[in-house]
Design a protein around this nucleic acid. Structure first.
Lengths: 333, 333
DNA sequence: CAATAAAATGGTTACGTAACCATTTTGAGT
DNA sequence: ACTCAAAATGGTTACGTAACCATTTTATTG
């Protein structure tokens, strides 16, 4: 590989001067500059970012640990995060969190001495949080938060859960199934708590047999759908804890011959882009403003990296209902 | 930062031995191993991958230059690429190609001395291709290819275009609008050529006023929709060059009160996952097998990196029609 | 127990860069 | 022409690791 030393020799200057030509061209005479640039061109020299990282003790790299892209929510956040980071001179090492590889993932991230970490996959009691704090690397979680209540960007999940459930109840639905994810995740816990609050407020009892905790995979959702079909009292409305779940459940119901919303109402949470498609028109709860949690998180993280101070970030965005076409008043038979 | 030297001092061994404990533990005595591991634990030592890269002259990093995720096709490829690379010990630097930043993107990639590059964004006559060849870094393009006909993984775009157009014609449609992307892109060029061939075969003339070249953005597609509405002969069928375009056009049509397929037939190409959703049910053309172009490309690229030989990869997958619910025979008025 | 091979460990170096300090050159003011 | 500050350039070093070769220790064999 051609190095700055080779360029220096070729141009008849010192390696230091080559470095200066590239980094502080103002501090170099015009003819020297031209000589060196000519040599760089001639030799096809490209500086080595890794070597630079070593001496500068920064990598200009951010690690992203995102939820899977089959959830459209993460499509939008990943886009925002990668683009904004790149525009600000950061490379992004992307990882999609799966339980199997989580140790390897963090191992790789720590070895890379990234300048910052942005992650969605954190559990309420996740031990990795303390490792992150101990590492001293600026980090932020988005969409989910840790029990320590530090460094997160989220929507008001409890309120979102409440709004969604309250809306279904207000439409006259009583046989409502909750389809969500693991309650070890703050997002699902919050949305579930809001669901409970709405039922309590409306004086309706929550039947545990209508609460379905899944890993949000298509396979488990299919099993959930089949289980719901076996209930004595089939639901008249589905409260999906995320739009991704809602959209998947819609697919199962429509494929099975149901009409949405005439035969079954479905509501989600997140207000993802695809839910606004005219063929889907998913009623949902989402952030009131047009803010994107990923965008907020990456902006905050880059601030933390540049300012070198790590304030405690706690951002919870307000939510509202987006009434669309997958819900309607319960039909009295 | 705590280095292997610190660990060595703490454990009373040489830095070389610390390195051996981590990389070739078999070549170290049991008590030494324990001593060193204890020191590593005590000091929270984590090796620096950048320093390792410097001396090993490899980064275990792959650069991905993907099309934007608002195209579901790239959602699927990005998932496959990132996951497969990570599973095989590679980090992935992700970039989403936009015209503004393309120079910076490649600058960053080359500075990082990545072990391989996988990219979708290449034009037929793209000068970057020669830079890539000159760099000596293994690389592969997926979904698109360069005129030099080297190192690509694609579907048979010409045949896909033919099948889609031929199908619409066979349904009796004559007023067909083509909505595609720039013909400097092999994918669109191929699909357009297939479209022409189908028209020729069926003895139908192609009206240039019904050919719409866009940048595939939502904004331009909206303008295209409005233009189509102004045509004297409104189309009875839309041939979208990608599923992403088809799904977007569906949204416009349905929002405007059209029924699909009764009022307008729509066909796409790519066979993306979301197109199979019961609410969308997009008729499309896609790869016959269940292969994923991104997966194929990343497997090939990692092979190239590991084998250190750069054979000329030319993979074109066969395609077939997926008949679903967005197309129907033309209604005679 | 000596000879000797094998195993274990250590010392030094290079990787490519920017920081740092030292030296030379330039130009302004007298 | 002479002084002296400023500008330009050079030399050396550190960053943290693995490769490489050298040395010491251990085990094996006659």
């Amino acid at each position: 590989m051609v190095s700055s030393k080779d360029v220096a020799k070729y141009a008849g200057v010192s390696q230091t001067t080559v470095s200066r030509v590239l980094n502080t061209p103002d501090r170099v005479k015009e003819p020297t500059y031209k000589k060196v640039m000519a040599a760089i061109d001639e030799l096809n020299y490209i500086p080595d970012a890794n070597a630079r990282s070593l001496v500068q003790q920064k990598t200009d790299t951010i690690a992203l640990v995102s939820g899977p892209l089959f959830n459209p929510f993460f499509v939008e956040t990943t886009t925002s995060i990668v683009n904004f980071a790149n525009e600000n001179g950061f490379k992004v090492n992307v990882h999609f969190s799966k339980n199997e590889n989580i140790t390897d993932t963090y191992h790789s991230i720590f070895e890379n001495k990234v300048d910052g970490i942005i992650l969605s996959s954190i559990l309420i009691e996740d031990p990795i949080f303390h490792k992150l704090e101990k590492s001293g690397i600026p980090f932020i979680t988005y969409n989910r938060k840790h029990e320590s209540n530090k460094n997160f960007v989220e929507m008001d999940n409890e309120q979102a859960g409440f709004l969604a459930a309250d809306y279904l109840l207000s439409l006259g639905h009583e046989t409502i199934c909750w389809v969500g994810g693991p309650l070890e995740v703050s997002t699902f816990k919050g949305r579930y708590d809001g669901f409970l609050r709405a039922f309590q407020k409306n004086g309706v009892a929550v039947e545990q047999e209508r609460v379905f905790l899944t890993d949000t995979s298509k396979e488990e959702l299919r099993k959930t759908f089949l289980k719901m079909e076996q209930l004595k009292d089939k639901p008249t409305a589905i409260y999906a804890a995320t739009d991704a779940i809602a959209i998947q459940m819609m697919d199962f119901y429509i494929s099975a011959g149901y009409r949405v919303p005439e035969d079954i109402s479905i509501i989600g949470i997140d207000n993802v882009e695809i839910g606004q498609h005219a063929s889907i028109n998913l009623t949902t709860v989402g952030i009131s403003s047009s803010a994107n949690l990923g965008q907020l998180a990456i902006e905050t993280l880059i601030d933390m990296i540049c300012e070198k101070n790590n304030p405690c970030i706690q951002i919870t965005k307000a939510v509202r209902l987006f009434e669309r076409k997958t819900t309607m008043a319960r039909r009295r038979v």
